[in-house]
């Protein structure tokens, strides 16, 4: 199963022109700044907005093809849509919200109710089935919205900023659950986010759009190493390291360790911005807690900055000025010392 989309859509100052192909079993994250056209793209895929030109098709069957005069209305597309702030029906209970799609698609009252209860149990909310959305916490509302979108067994799941409305405390937990549910969903999975951590942890492939155009696609690792623009570098060009924390020490997957500014336990992500990575010819003396030797694996010029890939372990990308590049004699294969201040390590619980 494959979703093919060529979306051309003009809306106010937005001029969206995106070609995208997503296969079943793959999770694609669309990243971009506000107004880049991310939400509009999802709305076009769901049929909430028509495309001006282009074609949207699932397994070769057109959903929207203005050239051929085809437009399948949203209620006829097999899409589960997660809205940014969930848009749960306020007059219905959590159970009725989840049952809504099943009822609309012809399930009996009892059948829909049973299926809704099953879904609520799957997202761990069996005990709030009778509660109205106003009584739910942000994390609970997110789960109800996810259950509602999945309950109709759609072929395509579209999630618009699924975690943006959550506070930092619940975000990690909800993100982990969401990843599990995404993993169990067999269809096409597409999510919009502006958070590279969400994108990297939930998606197999990142698609970055800026002003209505795709500027880069790839895994976070690929993009971190070689961001195509200053903007992409700032948005997603971060070092994301996976490890297990014990107190302030994080044992990294693939070797090496980092000291974090605060204590944590269990699986974590550590994020280090390339600008925070310092390179030295000699082992630096003084305050940095994280110091290790490495070798330059590649040098990339990006505007007025240089991105230097260094092998570790851990391997990182550092961003330095062209002057520093020259001064340090950073060529491929050169031996360097890498340092990162503990305060520059951001830790996210997985």
């Amino acid at each position: 199963m494959t979703l093919e989309a060529k979306v051309r859509r003009r809306l106010g100052s937005l001029d969206l022109d995106v070609d995208l192909e997503v296969a079943a079993g793959e999770t694609v994250a669309i990243l971009g700044p506000n107004g880049a056209g991310k939400t509009t793209l999802l709305r076009c895929l769901a049929g909430l907005e028509p495309v001006d030109a282009g074609r949207i098709a699932l397994d070769g069957v057109a959903w929207d093809d203005p050239g051929a005069g085809v437009f399948v209305v949203p209620e006829q597309r097999s899409v589960g849509f997660g809205f940014q702030d969930y848009v749960l029906f306020p007059h219905l209970t959590a159970r009725e919200n989840v049952a809504f799609g099943l009822r609309s698609r012809g399930a009996t009252r009892g059948g829909a109710r049973r299926r809704a209860d099953e879904w609520l149990a799957r997202v761990g909310l069996a005990d709030v089935a009778g509660a109205k959305p106003a009584a739910l916490s942000g994390g609970q509302a997110q789960r109800v919205a996810l259950a509602r979108a999945l309950a109709t067994d759609p072929k395509v799941l579209l999630l618009d900023e699924p975690l943006a409305a959550l506070d930092a405390a619940t975000r990690g937990e909800v993100r982990r659950d969401l990843r599990n549910h995404l993993g169990e969903f067999p269809g096409v999975r597409l999510l919009v986010t502006h958070d590279p951590i969400d994108a990297a942890t939930l998606a197999d492939r990142l698609v970055i759009i800026e002003a209505g155009r795709i500027v880069q696609t790839g895994s976070l690792a690929e993009i971190t190493v070689r961001p195509r623009s200053r903007y992409v570098a700032e948005l997603v060009g971060v070092n994301l390291l996976v490890g297990v924390a014990r107190d302030r020490e994080i044992e990294l997957e693939g070797g090496g360790a980092l000291v974090a500014p605060s204590a944590a336990t269990g699986a974590v992500f550590a994020v280090v911005r390339p600008q925070a990575v310092a390179l030295h010819r000699e082992r630096p003396a003084g305050s940095p807690r994280n110091v290790w030797p490495g070798r330059v694996a590649g040098v990339e010029l990006l505007g007025d900055r240089v991105r230097v890939r260094v092998d570790g372990p851990p391997a990182l990308v550092a961003e330095v000025t062209p002057a520093a590049l020259h001064e340090l004699g950073l060529v491929e294969g050169a031996a360097v010392w890498i340092s990162v201040k503990a305060t520059e390590v951001d830790v996210f619980a997985d």
């Binding site: 709305r43 769901a46 049929g47 909430l48 209305v73 949203p74 209620e75 006829q76 597309r77 899409v79 589960g80 849509f81 809205f83 848009v87 029906f89 809504f100 799609g101 609309s104 698609r105 509602r148 979108a149 109709t152």
Partner: peptide, 8 residues
């Protein structure tokens, strides 16, 4: 919008 994506 939410209702129509749910098939209503």
């Amino acid at each position: 919008d939410a209702a129509v994506t749910l098939g209503a």
